[in-house]
């Protein structure tokens, strides 16, 4: 098997995640889709790392995880406080940035 297949899988997962961001309204699910996209990227990095025979790709994936962790912490905090004030987890309810 050609390891390029890992890249195809990563592309597929990324696209699914992006589509999820576009069609779901629940902020938490939205967040999960973002995580899915990040993981797809990580998979691509790991595959590249193997192809090029160095560890830099893995390092990048490692940093991506750390940043994702930070992002999730802050993002979920935002969701919680949003839910407290609006009693809703729908992104479409936060549509006040228009005339």
């Amino acid at each position: 098997m050609n390891p390029v297949n890992y890249l195809y899988l990563a592309a597929l997962l990324f696209t699914i995640g992006a589509a999820g961001v576009l069609i779901r309204r629940n902020t938490i699910v939205l967040f999960m889709c973002v995580e899915l996209m990040l993981n797809a990227c990580n998979l691509a990095f790991v595959a590249f790392s193997r192809m090029h025979g160095n560890l830099d790709g893995q390092i990048i994936a490692f940093f991506t995880m750390v940043v994702a962790a930070a992002e999730v912490v802050v993002g979920l905090a935002i969701i919680v406080s949003l839910f407290r004030t609006r009693h809703s987890a729908s992104v479409d309810d936060a549509s006040l940035m228009k005339l």
């Binding site: 390891p3 890992y6 938490i28 967040f31 999960m32 995580e35 993981n39 990580n42 790991v46 595959a47 790392s49 193997r50 893995q58 994936a61 490692f62 995880m65 994702a68 962790a69 999730v72 912490v73 979920l76």
Partner: peptide, 23 residues
């Protein structure tokens, strides 16, 4: 499978174990 053993373990611990539980 791609030889990223450390990352694989971290993925299980951090993502599945911590982040998803936070979710």
């Amino acid at each position: 499978a791609n030889g990223a053993y450390f990352l694989g373990v971290v993925q299980v611990i951090v993502y599945t174990g911590a982040i998803m539980m936070l979710f």
